[in-house]
């Protein structure tokens, strides 16, 4: 017999449990609400779209990586299952295009085990080249940013396993450039961005329509627009931040199915065991 107060209690406790981190994020930035986009990797069944990751990598390589580092990304990762899945030969050839400086200062062509080389030798050099602003490392950038939803909608996030705040933010930021509204002062060397906290961002608009030429595969035609680039590169950055996302979700799906079935069997055993006890 389920009592009303048990339900109320369970509800309150689950609210307590579910409530808070999202509120924590809610207060983080006074920015316009960022829309949730459609991502192939969202939800319990999400996986990365290999073609999209390859396109996103192209944007990263041709645009982002000229200022941003990604120190945790190794060339070999680009050939691993669940990612862009370049062939072994492609990864080797790609790595060899880059010069890696060893600990003793000697330069040599890269190998797949090497990590993505940083565009600047140190933070100070990076700042000097970027008007004093430090381009953040992109290794886990997609998880270091988030979005907020007004109360009570963030409660839903716990039930949809919403974890795409980072890609949503990156997509919104890359499309957030524009002319500042009247009354907004933007300091020299900064750019107006509606999404960026404080609205004055040090990064010049990095993308423009047609800036990156995708290799078009037959049958599908991918638009060469800022919107498309930003979706692709946001997906790629999510993969860089969470390279095993697809296999983690796959394992989770199996685990939860197992647990539900196991719990059902356990309940039946429990009920049978207790059948002879009035309680």
């Amino acid at each position: 017999m389920i009592k009303t107060k048990s339900i109320i209690g369970a509800l309150l406790v689950s609210m307590l449990f579910a409530a808070v981190p999202a509120v924590a994020q809610e207060a983080a930035h006074a920015t316009p609400e960022i829309q949730k986009e459609q991502w192939s990797f969202s939800g319990p069944l999400g996986t990365f779209d290999r073609d999209q990751l390859q396109r996103g990598f192209q944007v990263f390589r041709e645009v982002c990586s000229s200022c941003h580092s990604a120190r945790l990304l190794a060339f070999r990762n680009l050939g691993e299952p669940g990612g862009p899945e370049f062939t072994e030969g492609q990864v080797k050839a790609l790595a060899a295009e880059y010069q890696i400086t060893d600990a003793d200062g000697v330069k040599r062509p890269g190998i797949p085990a090497d990590h993505w080389p940083a565009p600047f030798a140190n933070d100070q050099e990076a700042r000097d080249a970027n008007g004093g602003a430090l381009p953040p490392d992109m290794s886990v950038l997609a998880k270091a940013r988030g979005t907020t939803q007004p109360f009570p909608w963030w409660i839903l996030n716990y039930f949809t396993a919403y974890s795409e705040g980072g890609p949503d933010y990156i997509h919104a930021l890359l499309n957030g450039y524009g002319t500042p509204p009247a009354g907004t002062e933007i300091p020299e060397g900064k750019y107006y961005n509606a999404v960026f906290p404080g609205h004055a961002i040090g990064m010049a608009p990095p993308l423009s329509d047609g800036a990156v030429t995708y290799e078009q595969t037959e049958g599908a035609s991918v638009p060469l627009t800022v919107d498309q680039y930003s979706r692709d590169v946001a997906s790629f950055l999510m993969w860089v931040a969470e390279p095993h996302l697809a296999s983690r979700k796959e394992a989770g799906f199996q685990v939860i199915i197992f647990l539900v079935v196991f719990a059902g069997l356990m309940y039946l055993v429990k009920r049978r065991l207790w059948a002879s006890v009035a309680h």
Partner: peptide, 26 residues
Amino acid sequence: VVVFCIPFAWFAFFAPDILGHPDNYI
């Protein structure tokens, strides 16, 4: 315990970061 593991697995596998704060990835 098995029932409790269901939401536990939900968070651990599908949304491990939802209970934390994005800033901790900086």
